[in-house]
Design a protein around this nucleic acid. Sequence first.
RNA 1: GGGCCUGUAGCUUAGUCAGGUAGAGCGCCGGGCUUUUAACCCGGUGGCCGUGGGUUCGAAUCCCAUCAGGCCCGCCA
Length: 525
Amino acid sequence: MHWADFTAQRLKLECGENLVAASGITPSGEFHLGHIREILSAEMIHRACLDAGLDSRYIFIVDSMDPLRRVYPFLSDEYEQYIGCPLAFIPAPNPDGTPSQDGLSYAEHFLGPFLEALQQIGVFPEVIMNHQTYENGDFAVKIDSAIQNTDTIKDIIERISGRELPDDWFPYKPLGSDRSMDGVTVTGYEKPYVHWTDRHGESGSADIRKADGKLPWRIDWAARWGIHGITCEPAGKDHGAAGGSFDTGIPICKLLDSEPPAKMVYEWIQLKGSGPMSSSTGNTIGPIEALSLVPPEILRYLIAGSKMNKHIDFNTGPALFQMADEYERLVANPPSGTDEELNKRQRVARDTQNAALRLSQVKHGTNPSDSLAGVSFRHLAMLAQIKSNDDNIWKSLFESDHIFDPNPSDALIDRLSRMRNWIESVHFPDDARIVIQSELTEDARKNLDGEQMSFLINFKQAISDITWNDEQISQAIKDTVEVTQIGARQAYIAIYWAVLGQHFGPRASSLLVEIGSEKLEQLLP
RNA sequence: GGGCCUGUAGCUUAGUCAGGUAGAGCGCCGGGCUUUUAACCCGGUGGCCGUGGGUUCGAAUCCCAUCAGGCCCGCCA
């Protein structure tokens, strides 16, 4: 059974019919593909719950109350003054890294494009800005309870995480006079006010019913589970480590009088060969960039087709062909068979794969076969390279029986457009690139026998005064084959050696049309 | 130092929770499509399931140990 369906089943038993799946991300910088796993893990469980006839909501909590931790490389030095301030209350950066004046908050700035990317992959969460939850007072009861239980919480964190907290540790961080929570000391608590003094010598009171401060992360997380009634929140493996925030969150959540979701941890996405994604090392690919290359259902399939506890190597090179073609094959030929025909393992495989397809659809509930483009990635990549005009590609696909309607489907048009982006990008793998030689190479000469050489010489003459189109070229090849008394196969091989420097290639006449007569003559002996 | 995950065919992996004869895709090889779209179709090759013990009638699966790879653990979400 698929992990999403399995989880839905488990949630039904443990939590009943009303479920809330959640994701949470700090908008401290550009979102990257790793965040897509956070989102999709939860969203797919949400869909699986709906498919199982349960009531389910999916919420995306934006950690907008989290402080700016440091001046990231893409920020100007002016951000120094905002360190420690909630991301919701500081200005968005301009492209040059300076704070902008247009009123958009830092959190909103990075969130916007990410939400657009989510729409493209069919994810429509209820977005909750965490600072608003503070602002409207929903945290107040939990904050009060946390403060009442300061010693117990401190004990839980110290015992489970093995971390030692300072004597004056307090489970609430008020904002100081400069709206930063750095350098602020709590001096007392009189419900609902937390009194403080800050590093500037100012003092004041934070109202726990307002966004005047926040709970530290480990408590914030545990509190929000209760506030939003969250029954499931898959978390990244950083939270899942022993003594991590999931382990402390569970008892803290109970202490604050709510039922925590069960621990659930997903592995990270890595870029093949270069470790985990990190914006500081530049080893990152954004959801928008990924979506310009990869069709959304295939990006979903990347997550749906992997087990949660397996790390995913995202590779915009050769592996993308494999993943895309695997998806295409599965959609074209979904696993079938009755329970009687299959053994236990085959049934599991069948159900898991069908569920992965179901969950990969951009629009919930649509038939996977609607996303069928009808042509493999590999084949489309070849066509896109040798035909600059889209219409010629549709024509070719129709004539080769890949598609049965001369007008391409929306899915196919979409595929081609992303394919062209991919080919133009640095991510496109070299060995899939069709490289036209600039001269008849030494290597080619070595591999051509006398017959083939004379074929090429005759062929050069045959094309010297023809109209440059597919049909005429094809005819010229056939005519020359007859004249030269050479096997057709050998003739084609000769052409490929001359043009591509290898013994095989895409349909010769199509290729030659694109190369042009002038260029071709340079390549022939 | 503490902990998590992974190790199955050349590659990507399913199967591990509920033990019952090792599956798939890709690649590769051969054939077909009787003059090639890197397409498509058919057939075939290929695995002491990381290693060593243990439990069991029976272990990829459970237990212990061990090796290898990846990763997480600073009031940081």
